[in-house]
């Protein structure tokens, strides 16, 4: 149970960071932290109920393989999304010269 509490705390820290921080890079970092919270949650779910192993017919406590398979996929997706976001951030800073989300929003409201 303590792992679930830790997961929720990590998740909340990330969520607050997205609202609080102005810099895009820090916002992305907060997103990464949030994702880490979900990973912790899934790993703890896998160990909560001891299920029978999928292939071998042996006794004893085993972690559920499905949450782990799920989280591997989601880590890969998170990696892809995050790299794309960083590329976008890099291009924005090259073309616009600022990473402040407030300033970008003001400019886009004026020009579009």
């Amino acid at each position: 149970m303590i792992y679930i509490a830790i997961a929720v705390v990590i998740f909340a820290i990330g969520g607050i960071g997205i609202i609080w921080k102005d810099n895009i890079l820090l916002k992305l970092l907060s997103l990464g932290i949030m994702n880490a919270g979900v990973v912790v949650l899934f790993v703890s779910i896998a160990g909560l109920k001891h299920r029978i192993p999928a292939i071998l017919n042996t006794n004893g406590p085993y972690a559920d393989p499905l949450p782990q398979a799920v989280i591997i996929t989601s880590i890969v997706i998170g990696f892809a999304t995050m790299s794309l976001a960083l590329v976008f951030t890099m291009l924005i800073s090259l073309k616009k010269g600022t990473l402040s989300s407030k300033k970008l929003q003001e400019d886009i409201d004026r020009e579009h």
């Binding site: 976001a85 073309k95 970008l104 886009i108 579009h112």
Partner: peptide, 11 residues
């Protein structure tokens, strides 16, 4: 940069 920012917000 406008397109990039619109897309990044959505992301």
């Amino acid at each position: 940069w406008k397109h990039l920012w619109a897309s990044l917000k959505y992301l």
